[in-house]
């Protein structure tokens, strides 16, 4: 399986992925990015924060940028109409 590097960019700066993760293909790497965003935001939500300002930059094994997944891409957002 090819390896992808998923770097998180957010308000705190960059979390560089040194090790990478295996995924079947680029679509699989995107699914991992979406799962990861949901996991990170869910954890922060337990503390009362929903911060969707970040993105995950996906690179291939040679460091070529493939795509960006923005945090809002991982959610269907529903807000009160008069909010």
């Amino acid at each position: 399986m090819p390896r992808f590097f998923l770097h998180i960019h957010n308000g705190h700066g960059l979390v560089h992925d040194e090790e990478g993760s295996d995924a079947p293909d680029q679509a699989g790497a995107r699914v991992l990015a979406l799962d990861s965003i949901r996991s990170i935001v869910a954890e922060e939500a337990r503390e009362g924060l929903i911060d969707l300002t970040g993105r995950i930059a996906i690179e291939d094994e040679d460091g070529n940028p493939l795509s960006d997944v923005c945090f809002p891409d991982a959610f269907e957002l529903r807000m009160p109409a008069n909010g």
Binding site: I8, V15, E19, S36
Partner: peptide, 22 residues
């Protein structure tokens, strides 16, 4: 072990695990 396996112990994805380790 790699960060995917560490994440499988912790109920987090490899990417989330990497962020927590950082």
């Amino acid at each position: 072990i790699n960060q995917t396996e560490l994440g499988e112990c912790l109920g987090m994805t490899s990417v989330h695990t990497n962020r927590v380790l950082r």
